[in-house]
């Protein structure tokens, strides 16, 4: 293959790499932390790699570590994944026409549609070839798996970690909260969630998360009723 000598391919490939590079800067270190914590929680290194290959969802994978350590049921963890990743439903809607038509390509990119890959795909031009889009998705997936492998291998060697290293999880959630907050017109969901958690913690500290999630779900539906009503008035 002498694609690299072809002037039509050179700049395009460069742009794909330059788009994937910042993702690598995030995915490799975060993958390392995931692999490390996963193995420290008592799992084999290859299962950490399998999780990153097949699940490929940062926040949900971080969330699974304490849940696995607590031995929660498969159904409970699946439900938590559904809730944490429900935001992904809204990503696809803006990419419906932008993804390749060819089945295998299309479904792989859909599978690999993380927050970061989504933001890269919405940034690049619609005229970008299918191969370039696939390459971005595939490279990003590779960074995440590579980071996980490194972290899992380190975690399998060293047994004692510094106290508080798992705070990286809270830091990640804080970043995602800020990013969600930025895109919303109203901060009401944030204030509601804080109140709901305090209430749930007071009622049943052990089930505070589940209870406050249910409260938020109900509040979200009431919010819908309210916004639908105001929509009627406007019309």
């Amino acid at each position: 293959m002498n694609d690299s000598n072809d002037p039509a391919h050179g700049p395009q490939r460069l742009s794909v790499l330059s788009l994937s590079a910042p993702v690598a800067m995030g995915y490799v270190p975060l993958g390392i932390v995931f692999g490390f914590l996963f193995v420290q929680a008592g799992a084999s290194w290859w299962l950490a790699v399998l999780a990153s290959l097949l699940v490929y969802a940062g926040a949900a994978q971080y969330m699974m570590i304490p849940m696995l350590a607590a031995g929660l049921s498969v159904g409970t963890i699946a439900l938590a994944t559904l809730i944490v990743n429900s935001r992904h439903v809204f990503y696809g809607l803006s990419l419906l026409d932008a993804l390749p038509r060819r089945r295998l390509l299309r479904w792989y990119i859909v599978f690999a549609l993380t927050d970061e890959t989504y933001s890269v795909l919405t940034t690049i031009a619609a005229t970008t070839s299918d191969r370039q889009k696939l390459l971005v998705a595939l490279l990003n997936h590779c960074w995440w798996v590579l980071g996980t492998l490194i972290g899992a291998l380190i975690g399998a060697q060293a047994q004692v970690a510094l106290a508080g290293l798992d705070f990286v999880l809270a830091a990640l959630f804080a970043v995602l909260t800020v990013e969600q907050w930025r895109t919303k017109k109203s901060a009401a969901p944030l204030w509601f969630a804080l109140g709901a958690y305090a209430l749930a913690y007071g009622v049943a500290a052990k089930h505070a998360l589940l209870l406050s999630i249910v409260l938020s779900l109900v509040a979200g539906m009431l919010w819908q009723a309210k916004s639908a009503a105001s929509g009627e008035v406007q019309r």
Partner: peptide
Amino acid sequence: HALVQALGQFLPLAIMTLLLVHSATGA
């Protein structure tokens, strides 16, 4: 579906806040 739209507006920020508070409380 308006319900899906509204939940999409409300839930992501609420859930992220809950996960943040929950993990910080655990720490």
